[in-house]
Write a protein that binds this DNA or RNA. Structure first.
Lengths: 249, 249
DNA sequence: GTAATTAATTGATCTATATCATGGATAGGA
DNA sequence: TCCTATCCATGATATAGATCAATTAATTAC
């Protein structure tokens, strides 16, 4: 029996990708938000849903990028692997995020692999169908553009981070970002709602697990965080941000 | 007198941002390519042009992001600076590239500074005007989206690079990328048409100038490149790519 | 409930690259 | 053609974080 984890465990079952959930998710997407109920219903027809179990691969780096995915429930990791086997965790996605192919030509390939990190339900649409939607609803294309350009800027901030920051700053940054995205108040602090190992943090921060472990231990001693096996909660966000302040304006 | 530089020196004068050049540049832009002559003329009215001298700042990180810029001639560096003064060279832009604000709200800020690296001519448009164009011409929005998503993927590849690659691999990558974008055949090899110091390469590769200098010397001894003050030419692209092959699929 | 597996900690050592320091080379102005 | 800025090369040293290695703790399997 689980001795202790503060994480929510009641994740959705694959079959729970109900029509209602699908419509709800689609309607909540920032780029579909301004569409009418009927338009959403129409768009929904082009989507298919599917559940995955924890650890399942949703698509593989290098394979043909044919579909765009939208998270309905659970969490998904986007990972690039180098030939020597080193992994870079590009992003963690949760409800409402989209990922996968967004490409002009159908003969493009995925640049990363996507793995279910918990049981997940995703809905997906064929690339060409999604482009039709973008053409038919110009404001949708604009919203998608905005989201991608925001991601580009995040990505560039991250480049600055790993170009100039110390290991401690990188871990602090990773934890602050994750808590902003996935943090939920709990009795152990601002809990990052995600099974998150030291290795995951290492792959997100461009460090080794050992280094992350040492830093996490230190942060815990400083009562900045509280942590256990595969979970982290933030006790003192300001303290972590303080570590970052030297290079984040 | 210049003793030796293989770089083209006859750069455009600021006043040479003629109407003809402007129309030509606008017409060549990948996202305006499919528009009619009349449409281009109409769009052109919203653009203003301006010349800058080498070293001039075009906009500053942190200031209000009000304009979108398009390169007409010359080259521009996009730089992020950390509070400690460390610089990260995000990109080098040349004719036809766009940069600056592409943002949904007018109260957003630039995330990087833009400097003229040579004498340049840029044309620019107010953010809100550009968004009107995107709304009026849906296929333009789609093209812009594609370009940004390509940049995002490049940026993610780069994150993998600096997360996992050695200093030598980073420099090789930087040189290969630059030569693909700016390389011109010359009698010293595939010359990168850009005044490119060791420091620039260092800031693009997340390394120090000293480390870059050592690696550049080594590459030169291996006759992979030929280099001088502020210029680099590639003699053996395959050799450089070979250095990369261990982590670039 | 016990064994087997996986995750995390912690210590000892190593190494790639940064940092510090100096001299030489090149460019461009007077 | 000299003078002075930069730019570049290279040696010596320091160090952050990786790597190697061993131990402990938490989970899952039986």
């Amino acid at each position: 029996m689980s001795r202790f984890t503060p994480l929510d465990q009641n994740h959705i079952e694959p079959h729970m990708c109900s029509l209602d959930l699908r419509l709800y998710i689609l309607g909540q997407l920032p780029f579909f938000k301004n569409l009418s109920k009927d338009q959403i219903l129409e768009i929904n027809k082009k989507f298919v849903d599917r559940g995955y179990l924890s650890g399942d691969m949703i698509y593989a780096e290098g394979s043909a990028a044919e579909r765009l995915y939208v998270m309905a429930d659970g969490s998904v990791k986007l990972i690039q692997t180098s030939p020597q086997g080193k992994e870079v965790l590009l992003d963690v996605l949760t409800t409402g995020d989209f990922f996968g192919g967004l490409f002009p030509t159908s003969n493009d390939i995925y640049r990363e692999s996507a793995y279910a990190q918990t049981p997940v339900c995703v809905i997906s649409i064929e690339n060409s169908e999604f482009r039709k939607i973008l053409q038919n609803y110009p404001q949708v294309a604009l919203s998608v553009m905005d989201i991608i350009s925001e991601r580009l800027r995040d990505s560039q901030s991250f480049i600055r981070l790993i170009s100039t920051a110390t290991a401690e700053q990188r871990v602090a940054y990773t934890l602050v970002k994750l808590s902003e995205k996935l943090g939920e108040k709990s009795d152990v602090g601002l809990l990052i709602q995600l099974p998150l190992s030291r290795e995951d943090i290492a792959n997100m921060s461009a460090l080794t697990t050992e280094t992350v472990s040492r830093i996490i231990s230190k942060f815990q001693k400083q009562t900045l965080i509280k942590t256990g096996r595969k979970w982290v909660a933030i006790r003192n966000v300001e303290g972590l941000k303080n570590i970052l302040s030297q290079f984040m304006p």
